[in-house]
């Protein structure tokens, strides 16, 4: 077992464990923090798999921007409190999750190409950027449009007061 492989396993365990912790936390702040940890590990994994640009972006966008946004909302709105936990609500999704793990595992292991090894290689930021804007310049523009629309939508929702449920029920 090579050192790189060891690192992979460590990161994998870290990702799965912290994600599992994140989804089960009662306190939302804790959950988000575990998730940040998971994203950091994912960023390391991306670096390991030869994608330094993505690793940086993972930290900046996911762990940085998105998770901070989550934290802001949680802090301003509800202060991390989610109320009592109902264990029964986990039964059905967990069973489904188990079933999908089993069947996906079965499918994966029955594939003849499953044992192909991943040889270490790196896509340098320069070549990655060139490739991206050579080949995918139009999708990038479209995605930027999408982000702009999302920005407008978020602004609209944030400034608009809306009606209360009571009002809606009266109208009905």
């Amino acid at each position: 077992m090579t050192a790189l492989r060891m690192v992979f396993y460590l990161l994998a365990i870290l990702i799965v464990a912290s994600t599992a912790m994140a989804i089960t936390r009662k306190n939302l702040v804790h959950a988000v923090l575990y998730l940040v940890q998971s994203f950091f590990a994912t960023a390391a994994l991306f670096y390991l798999l030869g994608a330094p640009v993505l690793a940086a972006l993972e930290i900046i966008i996911y762990a940085g921007a998105i998770m901070v946004l989550f934290l802001f909302i949680i802090m301003t709105l509800i202060g991390g409190y989610t109320g009592s936990r109902n264990h029964r609500q986990w039964i059905f999704p967990s069973l489904l999750g188990l079933a999908s793990i089993v069947s996906a595992g079965v499918l994966l292991f029955s594939s003849p190409a499953s044992e192909t090894g991943l040889i270490a290689a790196t896509a340098s930021p320069a070549s990655f950027g060139r490739y991206l804007f050579d080949k995918y310049w139009l999708p990038i523009e479209i995605v930027s449009l999408l982000l702009f629309v999302a920005l407008v939508g978020a602004l609209y929702l944030g400034t608009h007061k809306g009606k209360s449920v009571a009002q809606i029920e009266v109208e009905q």
Partner: peptide
């Protein structure tokens, strides 16, 4: 070798689920 493709997919699948 860093890992087999299978292991990456299993990791990804687990996280997804």
């Amino acid at each position: 070798m860093i890992a087999t493709m299978n292991e990456v997919l299993i990791l990804s699948g687990l996280v997804f689920i």
